[in-house]
Nucleic acid binder design. Sequence first.
RNA 1: GCCCCGGUAGCUCAGCUGGAUAGAGCAACGGACUUCUAAUCCGUAGGCCACAGGUUCGAAUCCUGUCCGGGGUACCA
Length: 542
Amino acid sequence: MIDFKQYIKEIISNALTELDVQSNVVVEKSSNPNFGDYSTNIALSLAKQLKNNPLEIAKNIGSLLKYDSDIISEHSISKPGFLNFHISDNYYQKTVNKIISASESYGMTTVGKNKTANVEFVSANPTGPLTVGHGRQAVLGDTIANILEWHNYKVTREYYYNDAGRQMRILGESVAARYFNLIGKEYKFPDDGYKGEYIISIANEIKNKHGEKLETNSTVFRKEAEKAIFNDIKKTLNSIGVNHDVFSNEQTYYDNGSIDTLVEELTNKNLIYKSDGAVWFKATDLGLEKDRVYYKSSGEATYRLPDTAYHRHKLDRSFDLVVDIFGADHADAYPDVLAALNALDVNTYPIKVLIHQFVTVLKSGEKVKMSTRKANFVTLDELINEVGTDVVRYFFIMRSMNSHLNFDLDLAADQSEKNPVYYIQYAHARISNIINNGKANNLSIDGKFDTSLLINKSEISLIKSLNDFPEVIVNVLDNLEPQIIANYLHNIASEFHRFYAKCRVITDDIELTKSRLHLIKSAKIVLENGLKILGIQAPERM
RNA sequence: GCCCCGGUAGCUCAGCUGGAUAGAGCAACGGACUUCUAAUCCGUAGGCCACAGGUUCGAAUCCUGUCCGGGGUACCA
């Protein structure tokens, strides 16, 4: 099977050579089937250079084109000066064979062969249950990891959390307050403490486990809270198919001295100074807008410092690709991290930072302000219980991460039955059912079949879309925008459903039946492969 | 003030590196089940692609400015 774009580029280049013209040829898929399958604007872009009417130029190039008529059935010229190419149906039909023989590896590449990648995502501090907002990042990160794996990367899914800072201290104090409250002693609940019910249950567990003798300065509160909350987080993630390979925490980098080393080396580079009782990183010297605090006047570090040490270590682990997925609230920090590392001659080239915008949850038409501290958030668990994991995953992946996402809970529950994800899954289930019916009639899909019988418009159209899959997957690797896959699969499902309405698969015409069984089998493969990347089930029945 | 993301159909959003009549789902209206699952299909209606300039043969897409929403902005993460 050849690359049509490449092929067309070549035949045009050959024609241009005959005209003694040099130019970069761009070939793209035609948006409208009336203009063939592929088109090029070459005549338009040459108009100025050749001082000639684009239509004339297109005619000249067209008359010099030499191509294999088995591949390209015809070419045409249209309005402003486009050259259009029609791929022969016959050649397209071979795609069915190609897909079936590649099967579950159809669309895979070896781009990442012998390469390693690290994807850091979720990274919520264990101060409370995961929220709907974390859900977006969890699904996004996991899907991107899947995409990398599809291209043969060896992927590490990593979760990094801050366990040494203020947040965790307040968490400990919140639990302690609830604990002493339970045993009837005085302890002031912190002003900005965590108010969720789960804090009380943790305090209760501590009371059951440790009795009533704990001192106010005990580290048990913080540790038990972290443990309990992390258990829940992992459980939640697992329920939507997200499993991390590595959990890293900032404490490690205090303990092993790498934070001190980092500050020392930056000091040697004259990038550290003291002011107002705080320790500053001189980011302005490295071309950034503002200097940043590393150690607050309280002596506590801000999260930038351990983050930098952590990233240095991550790069030391020599991944070929390091993907960081952050929410928009973290967008400000990574330039400082990169700048500091670059200043120390660390190569930060493997790092790709993906920033996703927030999720606004709407409940009965009202915006729900999310704060773990104030405990007015909607948990990811609640959402999963409401609509199920497939819908959750699809919902979060179908939109571009650059778009602020409005998530209407009532609508999600209402629409769950007519959710687009079911539309795709239904296509798969329908196919499975037909194939099973075929088997029941002794019609297997192992034998020979005649692709040239697939001539209905809906058949050709479906095949063309199936043929795009590898290109889509490569495209997604380049720009790491998973919503493209979701949209593509929706389109495949749509093509299939239309075909289903137009053409009956199992009929008295044995040869046609065999051909169509193969066609739907190839559609099934593409749906399965695509859904697998998205981490969504491909059900046999619905 | 400055920085980042967005502003596309009533609602939620697609629209790949600028391309030829701007798309989907939901909501509305009208059709199609004695036939492989109607969780489907077909059709109708709905848009000054925030606004104003600019670049280009050609702009939702690129540039500039304005307005609106979200996030950040020297010691929260």
